[in-house]
Design a protein around this nucleic acid. Structure first.
Lengths: 264, 264
DNA sequence: ATTTACCATCTTGTCTGACAAATTCAGTCG
DNA sequence: CGACTGAATTTGTCAGACAAGATGGTAAAT
């Protein structure tokens, strides 16, 4: 074909230029939704570049949600284009954690209210299981942070509104450290865990009973207390934990396991 | 050397797993902001993979705004690292708009509460100006949708918590269409606008007075009524308008720009 | 001694070739 | 006609090499 023999202009990023041109071509409708675009080899020849660059370019588009690739089959224009919310990762510190909590509180409260009204039996079961998992993890001497987050996520799911799970999931990663701090504070751990369990139980009961207002109240109390517990943890502990995490970062404990214990 | 000889578990996408692990490590603080991360060769050896996969993984992170690479120098954790939440553009329809509103209501209520407590004089002024702008726009025969959204955004800004503005900005685009629908409904427009103005005024007064609870109540009422107004609009009108907008919206990869107009 | 020019070295970007894994499709056999 | 087989196709991964740009140290010059 040789429809474009121009040397890609001496720019900063070759693969980026190619990605841009491919993106333009797709958005211009050269290949419709779900259509298969040329093979990597073919694109490489068309643009006069190696397959590596084509792959990098396609990788960018794939990351942008514009195309999907299936090994052995090809790369395709995405069926459902996506938009992305991009925002800066906050500084690790008490203030920024509090800001995240400020956002989460109204969301979780509303999620609990909706969950009380809309939860399906299986969703309620998952919430219950999550609570049990927390107990078991704590019993086993673990921090139970992942299980705690899973509990809250199960409630968000029971709200049956994808936006809640999406936003809360998004902010979960920032809370991971914060919750660990409160759990690791030895002197307070015992008392705190009792409070947490009681508050979780209250939320679960209200949701199970279908009492929306009570669920909202219980969630509000829990989130408020969570912030108090965090504030009560000495800030130097927070700081030292962050440094500690940095030091032990290479060890095998870091991988994040999805708690996929449920049968969907 | 050879600190991680585990075979990457048989997963669908190898490079994706590596990207996830790198992303986790960065967010766990293994490498601080602006720090140089190991060379591609070194990472390849550490994870037991080839440089190609490392490059693909880093490419993903770079595309996600988590790292930047400089040829000859290395790859670095971004100074202002960002994580991106991607979600599919919802089907145009009343149900999905209602879901967005469900998420926004608690957020806007809390934003109004915080704004009442924290607003600076200049922020209050911006809210006032936005209200005037709505009047002027409507007076001029325009829909005033942009001005309406600006009003709400000004309140979110006055909450002085970047996460509120980020999330609300993100969902604004989905609301743009919905508000237009209610405003375009000729038969109801007059009545609706009077209501909207009154409700806005109540919010502004409460915020200006520093009455957090009153601000929250006013916001809750406004959002509730907004949903009612939307439901009252004929659904066929909504549908046709949404489809029309979607047809002419040809920028799927457009990510939400960082709102850098804030002085922090 | 300080500054400047140079150069070895390192790191990412790109190229080339190969194989593995998964899919597709045509042909064959029941 | 339908199910299976196997070759061809295509993306994913691997390996090695060179090019382009950056870094830091050393020697030369003032």
């Amino acid at each position: 074909m040789k429809e474009d023999t121009r040397q890609p202009s001496r720019g900063p990023q070759l693969s980026e230029q190619v990605a841009q041109r491919l993106s333009d071509a797709i958005q211009a409708g050269e290949w419709g939704r779900g259509a298969r675009l040329p093979t990597e080899a073919e694109l490489g020849e068309r643009f006069g570049i190696s397959r590596s660059v084509v792959r990098e370019a396609i990788s960018m588009l794939r990351n942008g949600g514009l195309v999907t690739s299936r090994r052995g089959s090809g790369s395709f224009v995405a069926e459902a284009p996506t938009v992305s919310l991009r925002l800066a990762i906050p500084d690790p510190g008490l203030q920024s954690v509090v800001e995240v909590l400020e956002l989460r509180r109204p969301l979780e409260v509303e999620a609990a209210r909706l969950a009380a009204e809309r939860h399906t039996p299986s969703q309620l079961r998952r919430i219950r299981n999550a609570m049990v998992d927390i107990d078991e993890a704590v019993e086993a001497g673990l921090s139970g942070v992942d299980q705690d987050l899973a509990f809250h996520r199960a409630i968000a799911e029971a709200a049956n509104n994808t936006h809640f799970t999406a936003v809360l999931d998004f902010y979960n990663r920032f809370l991971h450290q914060a919750i660990r701090v409160t759990r690791t504070n030895e002197s307070l751990r015992e008392t705190f865990m009792q409070q947490v369990v009681a508050e979780h139980q209250a939320m679960l009961d209200a949701i199970a009973a279908g009492d929306a207002d009570a669920a909202a109240r219980a969630a509000a109390i829990h989130l408020e207390h969570a912030e108090m517990r965090l504030r009560q943890a000495p800030t130097d502990l927070l700081k030292s934990m962050l440094e500690q995490e940095e030091a032990q970062a290479g060890s095998p404990s870091a991988s994040t396991e999805q708690t996929g214990d449920d049968s969907r």
